[in-house]
């Protein structure tokens, strides 16, 4: 642990030095999650797949008129939302969970938050395989626009890192945020048009979708995977701006308060 420093700028300078730690933390999260389960990593395929099957049976009857390929429509929404929900929740608790070690050894603290988010990102990336399988099974069109999905996925990662760092910092000081956020995530889930078409919501409430950055990211992904069309410029712009703002906000808040974490964990 080279500490010939004056504490400033360790945010960036130390990143390369602790890269190996980040790798180990990501590996740990993934290994521990699936250890002792017979199906192992396949759970990350099976979980969205089974939910999809159940919801397809239930909802395809109701919404079949408005949604052309319900399985793919649902899966894109679910995968994007699950990554955001799991990643931000995990990051929220990352500082508190690692409190014991944070008190003993100096490590850039954001590594613990990033570790959780990236391990969820790996699961997310793997579960895209499920999406492709379902696309093949439902005879969906594979268009060049699928490659465009990299852009919203990157924005999603930025958004999740920002929200995760912000929540991690705040939760250290206010533990009840954990419970508040749980309720918020449920609300967000119902407000992101994951298993219903956005058009069933009355006109006067449509602005809620326009304000919801997660919904914006989901629609961008649907443009790529499902509809095979170019992004809506307005949606893309809104998603990009909100992701950048949240990321910067998360970094600033985390950086500002990280030295006080130790007094509260």
């Amino acid at each position: 642990m080279e500490i010939s420093k004056k504490f400033e700028h360790r945010f960036i300078v130390n990143f390369s030095k602790y890269q190996y730690l980040l790798k180990e933390l990501i590996k740990r999260d993934i290994k521990i999650k699936y250890r002792r389960s017979v199906l192992g990593i396949f759970w990350s395929f099976l979980n969205p797949l089974l939910t999809m099957v159940v919801l397809t049976i239930i909802f395809s009857a109701i919404f079949s008129m408005t949604i052309e390929n319900f399985p793919v429509y649902f899966l894109t929404g679910k995968l994007v939302f699950d990554f955001f929900a799991q990643g931000s929740k995990g990051a929220m608790m990352s500082i508190i969970r690692n409190g014991a070690i944070i008190k003993k050894v100096y490590v850039p603290k954001y590594m613990y938050s990033l570790g959780v988010i990236f391990s969820n990102f790996v699961t997310f990336a793997l579960s895209l395989i499920v999406l492709f399988m379902v696309m093949i099974a439902t005879h969906a069109d594979f268009t060049i626009y699928i490659l465009y999905a990299i852009l919203p996925i990157l924005l999603l990662l930025m958004f999740t890192i920002g929200a995760g760092l912000l929540l991690a910092a705040l939760t250290v000081f206010f533990r009840d945020i954990e419970h508040l956020y749980g309720v918020f995530i449920t609300m967000l889930m119902y407000g992101s048009a994951i298993f219903y078409p956005a058009s069933i919501i009355p006109q006067q409430y449509q602005f809620l979708f326009n304000l919801n950055p997660i919904y914006a990211l989901i629609s961008l992904c649907r443009d790529s995977f499902l509809y095979g069309q170019a992004f809506n410029t307005g949606t893309l712009l809104y998603a990009s701006i909100s992701s950048v703002i949240i990321l910067i906000l998360g970094i600033v808040v985390f950086y500002k308060y990280q030295d006080k974490f130790i007094l509260n964990i």
Binding site: E2, S4, A100, I102, K104, V105, D259, I262
Partner: peptide, 26 residues
């Protein structure tokens, strides 16, 4: 050992520092 940042004052440390505080905390 760098775990806490002091409220005031300066600190300079040159060289590889290993803390043997609580073993196996991580």
């Amino acid at each position: 050992s760098g775990v806490m940042k002091p409220t005031e004052g300066n600190l300079e440390i040159k060289g590889k520092l290993v803390p043997l505080l609580e073993l196996g905390a991580g």
